[in-house]
């Protein structure tokens, strides 16, 4: 699939999706360039998962077209399509009856049944990349911490070296510190492999930090699609400006100059102490 000439990895053309009367996605049109890291953000029920699942045909649009590598997904074999698209499902559901090793090698095993050596090497490589020690290989998902499970979920999505990676809130249930580490790792993986990523998140900070482009959805319509800088500098709608208002007000002064800016939290706190 990598031989196509277009440099657009994913394209939505006027895609609508409704369940009965209820429209959950209306007239979505956008292009994702090869190697891009698109973060999708929006309130719950805004259609993020819906849009994501259309890429690997877990959902079909009610109208409009989704193209992957320039080809209408409806004309592709869904099995082949999915094998080239890594998928980390919302909540990173691992197969509970399989060890970590079997979970990660699930997709490679579907592809090359006999080449156990190659699969084992790939598993080892991805364990390293997502920062899991090899002695976890024989463990079952129930014997892992939440963060470890999410790392395995990422490794599993990446194990067959797909061209596109779809991630649905992969860092949901982990603490701030682990989340930071995972963010750093996924960024590095993206840089090193040049993979195209669509990443759903609820955290605007995460969306701005990770994305090369950010897609803001609300009520099934696109509020804004642009680089983090564009989003921060020019929020297109009221919804977007509310979403990024904290980030717009954050100032990144170095530690020793924090009190120099009178608007910084540190300066205000100092002033309050001095006034006593």
């Amino acid at each position: 699939m990598g031989t196509t000439t277009t440099d657009t990895a994913i394209e939505y053309r006027d895609v609508c999706k409704s369940y009965g009367e209820k429209s959950v996605l209306s007239h979505l049109s956008l292009k994702v360039k090869r190697g891009e890291f698109v973060t999708m953000i929006g309130s719950s029920g805004s259609g993020k998962t819906t849009a994501l699942k259309m890429v690997n045909r877990l959902l079909e649009p009610t109208s409009g077209t989704v193209l992957v590598d320039g080809r209408d997904v409806r004309e592709t074999d869904p099995i082949q399509l999915r094998r080239n698209i890594g998928y980390a499902i919302q909540g990173s559901v691992l197969f509970p009856h399989m060890t970590v090793e079997d979970n990660i090698s699930y997709v490679p095993n579907l592809l090359n049944k006999r080449d156990h050596d190659r699969t084992r090497k790939a598993v080892h490589k991805w364990m390293g990349i997502v920062g899991l020690p090899d002695d976890l290989l024989d463990r079952y998902p129930s014997e892992l911490s939440g963060g470890q499970q999410q790392r395995v979920g990422i490794a599993r999505a990446l194990a067959a070296s797909p061209d596109i990676l779809l991630m649905d809130e992969p860092f949901g249930a982990v603490d701030e510190i682990t989340r930071g580490q995972l963010q750093a790792e996924i960024s590095r993986i993206h840089r090193e492999t040049g993979i195209t990523v669509m990443f759903v998140t609820h955290d605007i900070g995460e969306a701005l930090r990770l994305g090369t482009r950010v897609l803001v959805l609300d009520g099934g319509t696109v509020q804004q699609y642009g680089t983090p800088e564009e989003i921060l500098a020019d929020p297109a709608t009221e919804f977007v400006s509310q979403l990024v208002s904290r980030q717009r007000h954050t100032c990144d002064l170095p530690e020793d100059q924090l009190c120099a800016c009178e608007h910084s939290g540190a300066a205000r706190a100092r002033a309050a102490l001095d006034a006593r």
Binding site: N56, I89, Q90, V93, F95, Y106, L110
Partner: peptide
């Protein structure tokens, strides 16, 4: 069998048969 697990298996590109044998039946 948890539908989320089934969707994960499907989304990863297993054929119906592979999903059945490797995931659904064992579970």
């Amino acid at each position: 069998v948890d539908p989320a697990i089934m969707e994960a298996a499907k989304g990863m590109g297993g054929t119906r048969m592979q999903t059945l044998v490797r995931v659904q039946l064992p579970l």
